[in-house]
Design a protein around this nucleic acid. Structure first.
Lengths: 342, 342
DNA sequence: CTGAAAGCGCTTACAG
DNA sequence: CTGAAAGCGCTTACAG
């Protein structure tokens, strides 16, 4: 209980000859305060260098003005494609625009996303949570739903679609469209390297791919469907695996630019002409897809917007109890040389 | 003042037949509590699903258990090289290990790093600050020093070197070493594309470069020194600029892999052989430097460690008032084909 | 439009 | 080793 040297509402109140209540109302911009009082108090606050203590406000008002965000901890997940940094940038911008702070943590082997979320909530550190990816049977979503805590999701909810606020691309359509496009330019054996099959986004893309194959009268061949974790080796590994397929595919869709880049190198090294023998399309439209020797056709998913609007949704969930709102961020297929584009 | 439904120390105290003080001491692991009491209270806390309110703890104890981190907002700064994501990952890991949370914000055109830092501090939201880069005449460092607020810096302090806790590579030596290496393999006109000259890291690297030139009896030619912001165009722009130099350099050091990658493409397109006509060395050792057609010699700066240990330093500054501690993270020069390496 | 009073959920010197 | 009491710096129904 050592005396603090901080200027408080009390000090301001004393000097302004009003009650602390009034000072508090000035802070929170309460419209009931007379203009005259407001101006006087504001002036004194300024003179005294007063700044409200956010912690005390939180305790009294039961609002923290903070949203929690959890990042994956694997370096590959964070660095491989620009989604996380860009979405985080969007979240930061969106939060700043809504006057929220962002409390960040990363999941690890020893501490799951769910545990972090629980800690954030139980310790009353956040008003809401943003989930940056959606898994099949996602336990974090289930928990958040069960205790009815405000959250928004980047991606497709695995369940409770009518209750979960989420912002997403139409990944089903994106995969459908790009598969159809490859078929339209004459490709008959179209492979898909799709990412982790525990992710909702992977499921959606596989669905769209299959649907497009069917409508194009191309048989689905499960040997042409690859799922698994992405890391630095993946591009090479899958590239080599595809080289050894008989007959070889004449097109591949890869859900990550860097993996596509790696695979491209393997094909070129093996004397396979791109796009003539093998068309390649990928996702994320990273700088890499533009800089590559053979520029890559890629789907721009607009990660920044995904992040930005996830805050928007969350803030509405916090303030107005909004639920089940859904926002679709458009994607763009950027056609380049790797599919004879331009 | 609606009644909350949260379980509080009071509830626990009542049920455990002890005082709230005792419960509080159990929470904070105060060694004066008898083992018997401790176990009983812990059990009851568990039974009641009690979890301490972090906000209330903060207010009473005047410690937030949170560190503030400010990211740049430019997409290029965040995405161009893996430093920021990797250092952030290190910070997150380090903070988790020290039981701290991370409050994240990003600077913008309208809100400077300094303003964000001030807001964090004045509103009592953080116990300390991590600065992810160091500028010449850095006003944030100056402010933090002036109010004596705990912080740690990734990079070299521009001033008050004996007071500022910082973790850094020896960028002077790194540039010195790589320049000397290029000279040793017979290069006579070594250019440097160095980044923004407002950054301390750029200054250090230029110094090391100049020193090495001198010791190698190579004249410093200011037309071979390029500074400025990095963005997607930069690689091309500088590549073209260098092509037009007479005589052309026979080696370039570029402080970013992606820029080096872009420049490499320009040279190859112009029929210049790498490394024969032009040796290229860069910094950051990103995936790109490994995946490139002509793998790039690059300096691994160990960004993760930079981030991780910045938390370490900060925590010591917060708890023990440590100041002016300096930690040097080793770099490694990874030699590859672009300088005839391997 | 403003104030007095209670309360948010903890911690911590002080006393024993 | 434990408790009673004051306090951290705000907010907010209630009353006027």
């Amino acid at each position: 209980m050592r005396k603090s040297n901080q200027t408080t509402v009390k000090d301001v109140a004393l000097k302004a000859k009003v009650s602390p209540s009034t000072v508090s109302r000035v802070i929170s911009n309460n419209p009931k305060i007379s203009e005259e009082t407001r101006v006087r108090v504001l002036k004194i606050m300024d003179e005294m260098g007063y700044y409200p203590n956010a912690i005390a406000r939180s305790l009294a008002s039961r609002k923290t003005g903070t949203v929690g965000v959890i990042l994956p901890s694997r370096s590959e997940d964070l660095l491989l494609n620009p989604f996380f940094p860009e979405a985080l940038r969007g979240i930061l911008k969106g939060a700043a625009a809504a006057s929220y702070d962002v409390l960040l943590s990363s999941s690890t082997e020893s501490k799951s996303e769910l545990e972090i979320v629980k800690t954030f909530i139980r310790s009353s550190k956040v008003d809401g949570i943003i989930l940056m990816s959606s898994k099949v049977n996602d336990e974090t979503q289930e928990y958040l739903n069960s205790i009815d805590f405000p959250f928004s999701l980047i991606g497709s909810p695995y369940d409770n679609k009518d209750k979960v606020n989420h912002v997403d691309n139409d990944n089903y359509m994106a995969a459908y469209e790009i598969t159809t496009y490859l078929s339209m330019i004459g490709r008959k054996r179209i492979a898909l390297i799709a990412g982790e099959d525990s992710q909702m986004v992977t499921m959606k893309r596989i669905e769209g791919y299959k649907k497009a194959l069917m409508e194009s009268n191309l048989a689905f061949d499960e040997r042409l469907l690859f799922t698994g974790k992405f890391d630095e080796e993946t591009g090479y590994t899958y590239g080599v695996a595809i080289l050894n397929l008989e007959p070889m595919p004449d097109a591949i869709i890869i859900t990550d630019d860097l993996i596509a880049f790696g695979a491209t190198k393997v094909f070129k090294g093996a004397g396979i002409s791109i796009p003539k023998d093998m068309a390649i399309a990928s996702f994320n439209n990273s700088i890499l897809s533009r800089y590559s020797d053979i520029p890559l056709t890629s789907v721009e998913i607009n990660s920044f917007d995904l992040g930005y609007y996830s805050v928007d949704l969350l803030v509405k969930a916090i303030n107005d109890g909004v639920k089940g709102r859904k926002l679709i961020i458009p994607y763009d297929i950027v056609k380049r040389q790797s599919t004879e584009g331009e």
